[in-house]
Amino acid sequence: MNRYLLRRVLIAIPTLLGISFVIFAVLNLAPNDPMAQFALNPGIPFEVRENIRRSLGLDQPWPIRYVKWIWTLVSTGDLGYSFNSRFPVAQLIMLKLPVTIWVLGSAYLISILLAIPIGIISAVKQYSIFDHFVSAFAFIGFSVPTFFTGVLLILLFSVNLHWLPFIYDSTLVVKDTDSLIKLLKQSAMPIMVLALFQTATLARYVRASMLENLPLDYVRTARAKGIAERLVILRHVFRNSMLPVVTLIALGVPGIFGGALITEQIFRVPGIGSLVISSIETSDTPVIMAVNIVYALLVVAFNLIADMVYAFLDPRIKYT
């Protein structure tokens, strides 16, 4: 197990290097100049601009800058400074991360808690009205793009009913019940949008996995032993069906981070997603690099976690 883990981590390293190299190369091969914002400013003469360029290290060829960037990152954990805000990038990300994790985390948790019972019931009562309803809901839920659900929710809850605000207030500090309610109100719609999509996707997996296990021999054995149907479903079938689902839950985390980009943009949630978009729009290379690395790290890490969890839960699997 440990050797397997070690090998997996070692394989992940070239992947991460490859991704960072691809992104760095794309950023630097593009004919976009991070200094362009100064070019139109008559207050900054050409020499000053060149000095800024040199002070940021942008006069060196990009392969050298890449090696320097990766070396600083590995040796000191330093992700550099944002060109725009002159803020350390790591600090910038840490500043935005809590909001994103709050919204994504609650949405994912809600969808897991909803999807599991929904999936179980609709598998046990296959072809019932409930099952047809769930199947249709799940199909629609993952086909409708999040930006449209977001717009519909805004139309319903903000424009028509005036229940919820549709712009996320980042300055809100939770110190009493009133501000807590305010926070819950302003997070409700982004969480709903994400939870709807994830519930739909997960419920399908839970249902499919349950259906795969239900006709198996061990289920018949359990029933033959006289175990109550409830226990057969919950103790025997459910536990076995959860194996692939747990993996899928872990594998879904990077995807939900990607999807959050759009949701954060609709509701103006000041999280990682909005940081990506604003940094791309201002050619803030260090921030773009760092956020992409964080995303890639998430993908690689959760792939690893998924495998680990699977091996831990299923004693039949032995990794060497």
Partner: peptide, 15 residues
Amino acid sequence: LSLPQLPFLLMVIYL
């Protein structure tokens, strides 16, 4: 597969 799809798309299109 490990490339973050949406941020990468946005970046390439913007650039």
